[in-house]
C-alpha cells in the first residue's frame, strides 16, 4: 500500500458516512441523507456503494465485487482493484470466503452468513421517485406512511398486463413501516432480502442517500391478496451448470436464433461446474470436442 489514506476516503468523510450508516441501521428502510463525495469514477458506476464500502472496510476483510452477479465485468474488476490498492485488503471471487460483498443488481445465490456484509450500489434510492418527482413530496409521503400511489402503480400493471409487470427494483416494505427500493435487483432476489443473516447496506452516490437492513429484518414485497408476489426467473436450467434454482441471463450466441441461458452469478456457476454439474450446452460441446 501506498500514498492513499486507508480505503481512499479522508477520515472526516468516513465518520460522516459511518454516522449515516448507524442511523440507517436504527431506522431500517429509511433513506439517510449524506454528503456524497466525488469519487475517482463517474456517478452511476457505484460511487455510493464504493463510499459505503470504504467506510466499512477493515484491513482484515476479504472483499468481493459483483456486477449483475459477475465478478469479471469492467465495473466489478475496477472497484475490486481500487480497494486492493487503496485499502490493501484481500480480494476474492468466492461468495463464502468474502466478508464484504459489494454488489450491483444481484444478491449472490449462495446463502449469506452472519459474518458478511452486503453493500448495494443504488442508482435511484427513492421508490416513489418515478411516481412523484418532487423530493419534498416523497419525503412527506414517507413521513405520513402514504404509500397508496405505489399500490396504484402495481394495480395499473395488473390492469394493463394482467399481472404485476415490475420485474426488478420491486418495492418492499421494511418492518411494516418504510417502503424501500431494493436497488435494481431482479424480483427473483427479493425473498433473499428478508431474514438475511448478513448486514445489508445501500449506498446511492449521486442521490446522496444511505439506507440499511439489519440482519433478520422483516422485508415484504408489496402485492395484492389476489395477485400475490411471485419471484420469477427464466423457466430453464443453466446451460453451463444445469442449475434450476439460480437466476439466469439469456445470451444470444449467433444471428440464427441461437441462445443459451447461463447463471448470472458467475461464482455459483463455476462452483457447480467444479463439483461436476454439467448443463446441456456445455455437455454437448464437450461431447463434440471428445
Amino acid at each position: 500500500m501506498s500514498d492513499y489514506n486507508f480505503a481512499y476516503l479522508d477520515e472526516q468523510t468516513k465518520r460522516m458516512i459511518r454516522r449515516a450508516i448507524l442511523k440507517g441501521l436504527a431506522v431500517p428502510g429509511y433513506q439517510v441523507p449524506f454528503a456524497s463525495r466525488e469519487m475517482p469514477m463517474p456517478y452511476g458506476w457505484g460511487t455510493g456503494g464504493v463510499q459505503v464500502s470504504a467506510a466499512t472496510l477493515t484491513p482484515e476483510d476479504r472483499f468481493k465485487v459483483i456486477d449483475q452477479g459477475a465478478d469479471d465485468t469492467t465495473n466489478a474488476v475496477s472497484i475490486r482493484k481500487f480497494f486492493e490498492r487503496t485499502a490493501g485488503v484481500e480480494v476474492t471471487e468466492e461468495t463464502e470466503a468474502a466478508t464484504i460483498i459489494q454488489t450491483r443488481h444481484r444478491i449472490p445465490e449462495a446463502p449469506l452468513s452472519e459474518d458478511q456484509i452486503l453493500v448495494y450500489q443504488v442508482p435511484i434510492p427513492e421508490p416513489l421517485r418515478f411516481l412523484e418527482p418532487r423530493e419534498t413530496e416523497t419525503r412527506k409521503m414517507h413521513s405520513l406512511e402514504e404509500y397508496g400511489l405505489m399500490h396504484v402503480k402495481l394495480y395499473e400493471d395488473i390492469s394493463q398486463h394482467g399481472a404485476i409487470a415490475t420485474a426488478y427494483a420491486y418495492p418492499v416494505k421494511v418492518e411494516g413501516r418504510y417502503v424501500m427500493d431494493p436497488s435494481p435487483i431482479p424480483k427473483f432476489d427479493n425473498p433473499k432480502l428478508a431474514d438475511c443473516p448478513a448486514i445489508q447496506l445501500f449506498g446511492a452516490g449521486r442521490e446522496q442517500r444511505i439506507y440499511a437492513l439489519p440482519p433478520y429484518s422483516d422485508v415484504v414485497s408489496l402485492d395484492f391478496e389476489d395477485h400475490p408476489f411471485e419471484a420469477s426467473k427464466a423457466d430453464h436450467p443453466c446451460d453451463l451448470c444445469g442449475a434450476r434454482d439460480s437466476y439466469l441471463d439469456e445470451v444470444i450466441t449467433d444471428d440464427r436464433g441461437g441462445r443459451m441461458f447461463v447463471c448470472s452469478d458467475t461464482d455459483y456457476c463455476r462452483t457447480r461446474q467444479a463439483q461436476g454439474h454439467l448443463g446441456a450446452q456445455l455437455a454437448a460441446k464437450q461431447e463434440g470436442a471428445a
Binding site: 480505503a7 477520515e11 468516513k14 459511518r18 466499512t56 477493515t58 484491513p59 482484515e60
Partner: peptide, 11 residues
C-alpha cells in the same frame, strides 16, 4: 485503521 476496526464493532 483503528477507527475502521472500532466502527466495525460499533456497526
Amino acid at each position: 485503521v483503528d477507527a475502521a476496526r472500532a466502527f466495525r464493532a460499533a456497526m
